[in-house]
């Protein structure tokens, strides 16, 4: 219990120090663009009410979850297919490396041209950004499955979906999780970028609207909300990861202690 408290304290120490420094350093600021932290915090409650949450945060989150979910589905599905097939891998790997090297924000104007300005495009933008790390890590993970376990499956005639579900996906899961974590932060970035161009709601849109309306403290508060959202999603991810990879951490710890 004390150890948990200690760790929480340690994790919060630096943010608190930074906030306090910001508070005092900006206290006498008269700059229009860099208002005192006090002002930003004061506008927070009436800027981010339940109503704005529903009209702006919720649409963003829904798009993020759909986009991230699709990226996971697509990345893992294709990754298993490509990772399990040596020929396919040799054929596709150069192209995948090329596509991955393209910074996803560059594709946003292209996607808008092709698919228009609606919600599907904004989701597509998120998928296009997030799918690569998931796909490439899944390919790596599937490629690296243990040979003795593969022999065990063959020998006991464990095939088809049962094999994919209980062997391939689980064996690749440590790698898949690495990709999924990278993808989560990319998806959040892509969510905001998608809303900067031609949106009518969402967090990114709101921040830009505040900026255009010279509501600078409100703009800063929006940046805060985005940061907090990132932290919360990352925490949620860690909780899921602990459940999914419980066996992996346990096995690693057992290995280290020379079991």
């Amino acid at each position: 219990m004390t150890r948990t408290l200690g760790r929480i304290g340690l994790a919060l120490a630096l943010p608190v120090i930074l906030l306090v420094t910001w508070w005092f350093a900006s206290a006498d600021s008269t700059s229009f663009y860099q208002p005192p932290l006090e002002t930003i915090i004061k506008v927070f409650p009436h800027t981010w009410t339940a109503a704005t949450f529903k009209s702006d945060v919720l649409p963003s989150l829904i798009r993020l979850f759909i986009g991230y979910g699709l990226a996971l589905l697509l990345g893992i599905g294709l990754g298993v297919l490509i990772g399990a097939n040596r020929r396919l891998r040799a054929l596709l790997e150069p192209i995948l490396e090329f596509l991955r090297a393209i910074p996803p924000p560059v594709l946003v104007p292209v996607l808008i041209l092709i698919a228009g300005l609606g919600d599907p495009t904004k989701v597509l933008v998120i998928v296009v950004g997030g799918v690569w790390p998931i796909l490439l890590n899944t390919v790596e993970g599937v490629r690296g499955v243990d040979e003795v376990l593969a022999d065990t499956c063959r020998s006991y005639q464990i095939r088809g979906w049962l094999r994919i579900r209980t062997f391939i996906l689980r064996a690749a899961s440590p790698q898949i999780v690495v990709g999924a974590r990278q993808a989560l932060s990319i998806c959040i970035i892509m969510m905001v970028i998608g809303e900067l161009l031609g949106a009518t709601d969402g967090l990114g849109y709101t921040v830009v609207e505040f900026q255009r309306g010279f509501q600078i403290p409100e703009m800063w508060s929006g940046v805060f909300v985005l940061g907090l959202l990132g932290v919360l999603l990352s925490l949620a991810f860690t909780l899921v990861e602990r459940r999914v990879l419980n066996w992996y951490h346990g096995a690693r710890a057992a290995e280290r202690s020379g079991h």
């Binding site: 003795v148 376990l149 020998s155 209980t166 062997f167 689980r170 066996w247 992996y248």
Partner: peptide
């Protein structure tokens, strides 16, 4: 069918997530 193998590498023939 009807044949089972016990491998030398017990640590790698059991599924660690099961």
């Amino acid at each position: 069918d009807g044949l089972a193998i016990v491998f030398q590498e017990y640590g790698r023939s059991l599924f660690p997530w099961l």
